[in-house]
Design a protein around this nucleic acid. Structure first.
Lengths: 151, 151
DNA sequence: GCAGGTTATATTGCAGACAATATAATTGCC
DNA sequence: GGCAATTATATTGTCTGCAATATAACCTGC
């Protein structure tokens, strides 16, 4: 008779729910973003850059993007290079400190914001998600993120 | 004066919380799983196989794993091949239906379950997550997953 | 100033994810 | 029986993620 391991059942694991939901969300965004020539992580990077533009803090160092997105340069450097090839951003060494690479939006990258501004509402519409509920879950997840990000 | 796009701010997006939390969770598992010679998706695949073993339903078709994990063969085929190389599973065509590839656990793959059974508790301990809270969030996320998986 | 540590970014290599396409086996239908 | 549609898996190509390592520029103490 096989001993049972309920703690190892997939359904019991929060980790699996988060992992799956994350991929499903990316898949939900994908067709909308493809129309804008973007991938999902590229879209997230643009969110940071657009907000920096509103706050008058462009250009921003790569390190700033790393911290906001919790991604390292092994991910962001090639991603930003692809976005540069696509004409959305420009990258250049700072003259103050030759170590830092400043990332700035191009005209095209800035202009994309208007089309992108319709994306969040469209996602909610397509997925039929409840906004208020989403807001609450977001708060709960943010607490978990903070906890994990420390450790 | 720059027009503002609050709907495009990173902090406002549930999607970003889920995306980040998913990566942080994977990172939390990583050192524990590395000690077992596993990656996180490989661990998830084993969860399915171990449960199938308990239920006496081994071997299982690749399609079964695809449905449980919500992953396609483009991800699972190479993953299962790596696990086969590592001696955890064996793959073979069904004689009833030559299209289906049956996946079974090896002795080593089965034996790994005992060490892995300590992983979930260890994760909770290390991350300091609240179990009861996690349980509730899991239910909420599962509802979202079902919603997205339909669409 | 300069040696040693720190910082910011880049590079390499590997393992997912997934869209798109391909292929072989099975099934259904007439 | 035979051909079209379906099914199960595989393959290819691109883009993440991330550990590990490398490198050049900065900073610090002495």
């Amino acid at each position: 008779m096989a001993k049972e391991y309920p703690e190892l059942h997939l359904d019991n694991q929060l980790c699996f729910s988060v992992y799956t939901l994350s991929r499903l969300i990316t898949q939900a965004y994908q067709p909308l973003l493809k129309a804008l020539g973007l991938t999902y992580p590229q879209y997230l990077a643009l969110l940071v850059l657009w907000q920096a533009e509103e706050e008058g803090s462009l250009p921003v160092p790569v390190k700033f993007l790393c911290e906001k997105l919790l991604l390292d340069t092994g991910t962001l450097t090639p991603l930003l290079k692809r976005m540069e090839v696509n004409g959305l951003v420009v990258r250049g060494r700072s003259s103050q400190d030759e170590r830092v690479v400043q990332v700035n939006l191009t005209e095209a990258g800035l202009k994309l914001r208007e089309q992108a501004s319709k994306v969040p509402a469209e996602i909610l519409c397509r997925t039929g998600l409840d906004i208020a509920q989403g807001e609450q879950i977001k708060e709960e997840l943010s607490a978990l993120i903070e906890q994990l990000d420390q450790a």
